[in-house]
Each structure stands twice: as structure tokens, then as C-alpha cells.
Design a protein around this nucleic acid. Sequence first.
DNA 1: ATGGTGGGTAGCCCA
Length: 264
Amino acid sequence: MIKIATWNINSVRLRMPIVERFLAEKAPDVLCLQEIKTVAELFPTDAFKALGYAHQAVHGQKGYHGVATVSRIPMREVSRHDWQDNGEARHVGVELQGPGGGMILENVYVPAGGDEPDRTINPKFGQKLDFLERMTRWAAKVDRPTMIVGDFNIAPLPSDVWGHKQLLKVVSHTPIEVETLARFQNAHDWVDLGRQHIPEPQRYYSWWSYRSKDWKTNDRGRRLDHMWASRALAEKSVAHSVHEDCRDWDKPSDHVPLMTEFDL
DNA sequence: ATGGTGGGTAGCCCA
């Protein structure tokens, strides 16, 4: 058995207390973090080692973005893709050794894309679509059992958002983003593990804005975080969980962790 | 229709 988790942490240094609590309570073997917001030199390497996560791949950046994969099973870093072609730290790939041996685990933080869903007036929206197109060209060449997890910043399905009609023109749920993400999915026949275990039309959110006073009562969430896998790997997934309780922990991230368990 | 909150950094950017 192997448990893999993903979490947009929104500053890993600020949130180490809840990261430690998550690792202690849920015990994933591997944790993929996005938005660590630090350079590798200031990443809390020793704190993770003390918890047993000695194997680490950190692709950091000062102040913004940044991803890290930490593991208590051996792994080695194999790639750092710049799918936006602008130097931002938004991906790190590892190969797991030991349990899950040979599995490639891609940790990605897709650009949010700004507020206006029109690339002619909002360059960030264009960069987001371009990032996804580069990911798609990469995916077409993936030929090993691979998992890609992280903050995709797109909620593709109607039940991935609190209001499908209300969000059709809101970046993260626009038709062009959904179509672009679908091309990425088809390029490798990725299985959406979240929806394999929690099918439509069940409610499934992983993010609630800080701008809502009472996030739980309003429940205006979106499923921005995803865990996708090659089909052969997906067939070996036995459980999947959404840790909404973490949204209520002290000084929470606006995203909650997802976890998938495999019988490998 | 608007602004609402949060993190990092350094005099605003990003989400």
C-alpha cells in the first residue's frame, strides 16, 4: 500500500504547524506541495526529516509559486518543466523507488490566470492556456506509469463548483479552460482519480476563497486540485479522500489536501 | 456591481 497526497499550502514556512499535523494524522507516504513561496535554501528541510520525510525535491522561488515533493520512501528528482516558458517554479517530477517502484510522480502548479477570461486584455489568461498546451504536448509522449497531481486551477465539471451557471465566465470554470484541460486529459488518457472515487454529480470541492466570512455555511467551493493517473495505475487505486477538516485548522490554507491510496 | 481576505516582500504583486 502507498498513500500519496497533494496540497496547495500557500506558504509552507507559515503553515508548518498544520503540515505537521496532517502528516501525523493522515500519514501519507508522499506529499506534493504547491505554492511553497520560498527558495529551496529556506525550505523547512529539517522539520520534514524529523517527521520521517527525508527524501525531498524542492523547486523553489522567492515569494511566489514554488513546488516541493517530500517522501518517506526513496525517490529521485527527474525533471523540472517550465511549461510557461518564463522561469517560474511550477513543476517538479520524481521517480519513486521501493514501494510503487518505477512510478513517476509529477507535481504541478498551473497558473491561476488572472481575473479576466480573455487573453487579448489579460495576458495571464493566455499564459495559463499556453501552459496547458505545453503540458498537452508533453503528455502525448508519456510512456510510463505516471501520476500528475497538484493545483490545476480549473474546475472542469458542473459539480466541481458551487454554481455552474454563475461561474461560466469566471476564470477556473470557463468553457475554453475546460476544453483545454480536456485536450490535456485525452493526450495521455489520464484517469481523474478524484472522480473515479467520488463520481458526478456528487459535490467535490478542494478550495474555498479566503474572502468568504463563513466558508462552511456558504460553501462556495471549487475543485481546483486534482490527482490524475495513467490507466494502469488508476486501476490499482483503492481509496481517495478530501480532507475538508484542514480548512478549519488554525491559520488554514485556502486549499485542502487530497490523498489517494494504491495497492501496488 | 463591487469588494471582500491572505501571503510575501518591500514599497505592490499574486492568489
